[in-house]
């Protein structure tokens, strides 16, 4: 580690700026990782644990003892008796300052002890019910399905429509092509927040309000996607297309047998971005979708946290579900993503 730390700029000695730089990196890493890690760990805590203060770092649950003669497992406590000797016992009940416990070594014998002499025992454990409950008892399974549907369909449509348009705009010179391109580019900077109302009217006019297709259709014709693909397709030599024409290929065949396979890297970048965009979309679905059965995961999560503010164990588990796909994509494809962003300025 030290060797790694000191290997900056090929010099053997670290100077002050090196130390400051590394301090910045490590601090930054902590600042980014801690809130997410904390939410992740907390999402496995049982409800009782999550509301206790001060919090424990790792998810813990009350330890339980199965003792002969008791149908239910008993919560485990550490009992320190008068002699100072500590023993693990099961708590039968607690009334006021007295508690009734039973030693697993002699299950038949109930002891009455001071409530102050016993201490609750916990073990590290994951509360998977945090994850299964919202899916079963609340509508999160529906939200999840809606999100997957929107993400998958919108991404496929985005790839198909954008690549067709990019093909036309990069490989043909036809009247109007520049107009179309400039028109698209000029709206690249135009945010949704400026056209919220008329865009919603169009949705209502097309009878797509409160409909997942309303979310899908309005997002697939992204100028960003067309732009990204067009820039890439411009690098494919025109000779290839002419060779294909001489080879009796129809224009459509040129598109899908020559252009599409050769644009695979750009298509992959767009696909990754599209999945992330659609999975994370918030404001537009918020406007279009009104009934809970049509909510996407982001909307459902927002609505749920507004309604059940104390159910943090559920909120956090579903938050983890919402960030999981993006995280996995990032883990495996981060090089494409960071390079795609750096080269195109797309976000």
């Amino acid at each position: 580690m030290l060797g790694f730390l000191t290997r900056t700029r090929g010099k053997s000695r670290m100077d002050v700026t090196d130390i400051l730089a590394w301090a910045w990196l490590i601090l930054g890493t902590l600042v980014i990782a801690i809130p997410i890690g904390w939410a992740f760990l907390s999402s496995f805590k049982p409800e009782a644990e999550i509301n206790s203060f001060p919090p424990t770092l790792l998810p813990r649950a009350a330890e339980e003892l199965v003792i002969e003669g008791y149908d239910e497992p008993l919560p485990a406590y550490l009992w320190t008796d008068e002699t100072g000797e500590a023993r693990t016992v099961g708590l039968v009940r607690r009334i006021g300052l007295k508690a009734t416990v039973v030693d697993p070594a002699s299950p038949g014998e109930r002891l009455s002890v001071d409530a102050g002499a016993i201490e609750k025992q916990t073990v590290i454990s994951a509360e998977w019910a945090n994850y299964t409950d919202p899916l079963e008892r609340f509508a999160f399974l529906t939200y999840l399905k809606n999100s997957v549907f929107v993400t998958v369909v919108a991404t496929i449509l985005t790839l198909v429509l954008n690549s067709m348009a990019a093909f036309a705009l990069s490989k043909y010179r036809f009247r109007g092509s520049t107009t179309i391109f400039v028109l698209m580019l000029s709206t690249l900077m135009l945010p949704l927040s400026v056209i919220m109302v008329p865009a919603f009217m169009v949705i209502v006019g097309l009878n797509l309000a409160d409909n997942l297709w309303g979310v899908i259709f309005s997002t697939v014709a992204t100028p960003t996607g067309v732009f990204l693909l067009r820039q890439y397709m411009l690098t494919i030599p025109d000779d290839l297309i002419e060779a294909a024409r001489v080879d009796a290929a129809s224009e459509f065949r040129i598109y899908w047998r020559i252009i599409l396979p050769l644009s695979a890297p750009a298509l992959a970048v767009l696909a990754i971005f599209s999945v992330i965009w659609r999975w994370n979309d918030f404001l537009w679905p918020l406007i279009v979708l009104s009934s809970p059965e049509n909510y996407t995961l982001q909307l459902g999560l927002n609505a749920f946290q507004g309604q059940f503010t104390v159910q943090w164990h559920y909120i956090l588990s579903m938050t983890v579900v919402a960030l999981l796909p993006v995280t996995l994509i990032f883990l495996f494809l981060q090089r494409y993503i960071t390079e795609g962003v750096a080269s195109s300025g797309v976000k």
Binding site: M164, I180, L206, S218, P223, V226
Partner: peptide
């Protein structure tokens, strides 16, 4: 005229969901 066929689907959606709203705004 084939390039028009290729841009048309994208242009149609773009016009309906972006361009018209901009004009209506």
């Amino acid at each position: 005229r084939m390039p028009w066929v290729f841009v048309l689907p994208n242009m149609a959606l773009f016009t309906i969901f972006v361009f018209i709203p901009v004009l209506l705004a």
